[in-house]
Write a protein that binds this DNA or RNA. Structure first.
Length: 828
RNA sequence: GCCCGGGUGGCGGAAUGGCAGACGCGGUGGACUCAAAAUCCACUGUCCGAAAGGGCGUGCGGGUUCGAAUCCCGCCCCGGGCACCA
């Protein structure tokens, strides 16, 4: 496409200007009100792809718009630079992950700059910077002091072939190791945890106040999974000293408990199992230990029949005093509640299925609807009155629940209990390319934090990457062996590194004050900018990253790193849609990436940005198809039209076509343009406000459709200037280069330092509006009326319209609904 | 199975109780040109009709309302998330 202006030249020129002049560098002492815009920092994967373009277009637009609205806008950028791809590349090619990563950062930074996105690059953070590692480790040690970081045994994915723990992502769908193909098994290992569950209640409650997409909040709620119920002791029949503790959310159904179930890993299983039953129980336990979660799940589809075994013992139902048999089954998970349940088949679908398979009795304790059993029956989990429940009979479920808990507490056999699905965060990774966990193990003193003056603990460079599945740290003698900071004796270092989600849990705080040398950031400076006003990123981070970052913010505030009142990091979250191609997400792994670079050299960054804004609502996915290029061309054509309007006489040909503008008294047509100008300000400002950029662009396109003919037919100089200047200002955050250049040619100064225009309500008011006249809801006439027309006048004008008279055919209207100045409906 | 989204021309989408299809893409015709490109103008939901005009139309079926793409009830389809959590 031939462009009306020098796209590449102009875009390069302004990108340099913004960088050299530090246009978007701000400091905490800036007198303007603070505003913090942040796009989720990316994993440096090399040149930017379309997903980046979309993400950074929205972020950049907000930065520029907020600046024009008079804010000091903090707009930092950094890189989530630890992670698996660099380490896998090292294993494959022998290149050190740092070399590999740094090269990709340079590439990504350059390609983001070429989109015209502006950042305060003085604040750049890379997760693998020694200074970032230092503060990551300092924070970890404070967590350790506070008991928020601890070591515990955990069942992890263990690959026998690789002799290492695997991340969940490294376990394939069939339960095998992605590298060796061995069957991954569960194994208990000592690992580091962060006590996120301590904040479970606050993490749940504070979701209420966040201006986040509802579905993200729902996903977090489900993930936290709070459930209220009761725990109670079931005394083992014949062994009064032994009790099985169970958790239930339905204490009201206790009278219907016809058996109990323990998880295969339950510590009492051995004691409960009688000699006659030992063989099948052991068999089941061995199978559960050897099988992956995936296998356990896939077995569930084949029924519950071979998933349980009778232990030979029974426990007393405290409500009925009757003994019920105890089973072991793998549908009960050791990791949730107490690892044991009371089974009420009548009111729980899994218990129902199990009872059917093992021929266990079923007693209904809630009256199901009339035809329930005729219609197939099964477990009934709906509302209803209590039956077969002794003193609970006749109560509704909520009341019965409360009474049952009261009873348990009065009898001293149980109490109210809240459980969470959320588990503590396992942060140990047997990986090299991550932040080392800064502790040493001493045979004398146990776990000892590395002293502050020895931080950061950095991984050594002289390591060899081999495809053994083991971190090179674990076998590096120089790194591994050290002395205990407490007793001076020989000790070994922790060789695990932290989950990279730790790095991304506080980077937005370091951005506020990245120069501080004696702590991660100054609490007051962080408090000045925080919380982030606009956080922008992909929906794929809805749970993990956003939950961890919220947890970190709360914990850091409680530990004095932040003002105590700062409870949430991201006031406002926006999740932009992804780019799809042939129905699947566009991604490097799928090999269906479209490189932005080809558009930058032809239509330019502005046109590409405009496309992303115009193509649809920001939250919606974008389908990249054969037609997309023509739409992008359309955006480029529009920018040409804007350019010709704003910089007339640039081409000799143009001068001949466009007459010189007039001066003197403005005509009615001129006033119509002024009106359109001021209405445009309102419309576009409102669209920016509600993130409706596609309609903002449409409004600007309509406006140019109006101005083109106006200019060619002989415009009034001042009216045209006002119109074009306004248009450029409104477009400036969306298409920063072309508007900057056009503005500079017109006024000599910098458009992005100008203030956002404000509409004059007087000028924006319409002289007349179109009023629709309907007869029985069908449009019959359109009348031009004054915007403030009285209902009686509107009615009279409507009834007098010739089309209406014809439609009525002399009949008297039954009813007339007048909603001036928009509409009058005449009902016959 | 459960929980969210969503379904509007040939396509992306607009309209959140009041003119359905703004704006753009694509298409058709025209102006300019020796010609093309670029640019500009007009038309473009569908059916009937030569036209004037009229019928139909926002996944399907009901309902509320003077009036429904929009609100309510039931269903169908598509996309996403969670999935033995007691």
């Amino acid at each position: 496409m031939a462009k009306a202006y020098d796209v590449t030249g102009i875009e390069k020129k302004w990108q340099q200007r913004w960088a050299e002049e530090g246009t978007y560098e701000v400091d905490a002492d800036d007198p303007r009100p603070p505003w913090y815009v942040l796009s989720m920092y990316p994993y440096p994967s090399g040149a930017a792809h379309m997903g980046h373009v979309r993400n950074y277009t929205f972020g950049d637009l907000l930065v520029r718009h907020r600046t024009m609205l008079g804010h000091a806008v903090l707009s930092p950028f950094g890189f989530d630079s630890f992670g698996l791809p660099a380490e896998n590349a090292a294993i494959k090619t022998g290149t050190h992950p740092r070399v590999f990563t740094d090269a990709r950062i340079v590439e990504l930074k350059e390609s983001i700059t070429s989109l015209g996105a502006v950042y305060d690059w003085r604040r750049e953070i890379r997760s693998h910077d020694p200074e970032y590692i230092r503060w990551n480790q300092v924070i970890f040690q404070r967590f350790l002091e506070a008991g928020l970081a601890y070591r515990a045994n955990a069942p992890v994915n263990w690959c026998p072939g690789c002799q290492t723990v695997l991340a969940n992502e490294q376990v394939l769908a069939d339960g095998t190791c992605e590298r060796s193909g061995d069957l991954v098994i569960k194994r208990d290992l000592e690992q580091w945890f962060l006590a996120i569950t301590r904040y479970a209640d606050e993490l749940l409650a504070d979701l209420e106040g966040l201006a986040w997409p509802e579905r993200v909040k729902t996903m977090q709620r489900n993930w936290i999974g709070r459930s209220e119920g009761a725990e109670m002791d079931l005394v083992v029949n014949g062994r009064p000293e032994l009790a099985l503790r169970v958790f239930t959310t339905r204490p009201d159904t206790s009278f219907g408990m016809t058996y109990a179930v323990v998880a295969p890993e339950h510590p009492l299983l051995d004691l409960l199992t009688t000699d006659e039953c030992r063989a099948p129980v052991e068999d089941l336990r061995a199978r559960a230990a050897a099988s992956s979660d995936i296998e356990r799940l896939s077995e569930s589809s084949s029924g519950l029949a071979k998933r349980g075994a009778f232990t030979g013992s029974s426990v007393i139902n405290p409500f009925t005093g009757q003994p019920v048999p105890v089973y072991v089954a793998d549908y009960v998970l050791m990791g949730y509640g107490t690892g044991a349940i009371m089974a009420v088949p009548a009111e729980d679908t899994r218990d129902w299925d199990f009872a059917q398979a093992y021929g266990l009795p079923i007693v209904r304790t809630v009256q199901p609807p009339e035809n329930w059993d005729k219609d197939g029956g099964g477990a009934y989990t709906g509302p209803g009155d209590k039956i077969n429940s002794g003193w609970m009979n006749g109560l509704d479920i909520p009341t019965a629940k409360a009474r049952a808990i009261d009873w348990l507490e009065a009898e001293g056999v149980g109490e109210r209990k809240v459980n969470y699905r959320l588990r503590d965060w396992l942060v140990s990774r047997q990986r090299f390319w991550g932040c080392p966990i800064p502790v040493v193990y001493c045979p004398q003193d146990g776990i000892v934090p590395v002293p502050k003056d020895q931080l950061p603990v950095l991984a050594p460079d002289d390591v060899e990457f081999r495809p053994t599945g083991e971190s090179p740290l674990a076998t590096h003698e120089g790194f591994l062996h050290t002395t205990c900071p407490t007793c001076g004796g020989p000790a070994t270092r922790e060789t695990d590194t932290m989950d990279t989600f730790v790095d991304s849990s506080w980077y937005f705080l370091r951005f506020t004050d990245p120069w501080t040398v004696d702590r991660p950031f100054d609490p007051d400076v962080a408090g000045h900018w925080m919380p982030v006003d606009n956080y922008i990123g992909g929906i794929e981070h809805a749970i993990l990253h956003l939950l961890y970052a919220r947890f970190y913010t709360k914990a850091l505030a409680d530990l004095g790193f932040l003002p105590a009142g700062l409870r949430e990091p991201f006031a406002n979250l926006f999740t932009q849609g992804m780019i799809r191609m042939d129905g699947t997400k566009m991604s490097k792994s799928k090999g269906n990436l479209v490189a932005p670079s080809k558009y930058l050299t032809t239509v330019g960054a502005d046109a590409l940005r405009l496309f992303h804004l115009f193509v649809g609502p920001p939250a919606d996915d974008v389908d990249w198809s054969e037609q997309t290029d023509s739409v992008i061309d359309g955006c480029a054509r529009y920018l040409d039209r804007v350019w010709r309007l704003a910089v007339p006489g640039d081409e000799a040909e143009e001068r001949a076509v466009v007459p010189d503008p007039r001066s003197g008294e403005p005509t009615a047509d001129d006033l119509e343009i002024r009106r359109a100008t001021h209405r445009l300000i309102d419309r576009v400002s409102n669209d920016y406000h509600r993130w409706s950029y596609n309609t903002a662009v449409a409004a600007c396109m309509e406006f140019v459709n109006l101005l083109g003919p106006y200019q060619r037919s002989g415009a009034h100089q001042e009216v045209l200037d006002e119109a074009v200047d306004t248009l450029l200002l409104l477009l400036a955050p969306m298409v920063p280069h072309v508007t900057a250049e056009a503005w500079e040619r017109r006024h000599g100064d910098h458009i992005h330092l100008r203030t956002w225009p404000v509409a004059d309500p007087e000028l924006a008011r319409e002289a007349t509006v179109t009023m629709v006249v309907q007869v029985n809801g069908k449009v019959k006439a359109r009348l031009e009326v004054a915007p403030d027309i009285e209902p009686s006048d509107a009615e009279a004008r409507a009834l007098a319209a010739p089309e209406v008279v014809a439609a009525l055919g002399g009949a008297a209207p039954k009813r007339v609904i007048a909603k001036p100045p928009k509409m009058v409906n005449i009902v016959l």
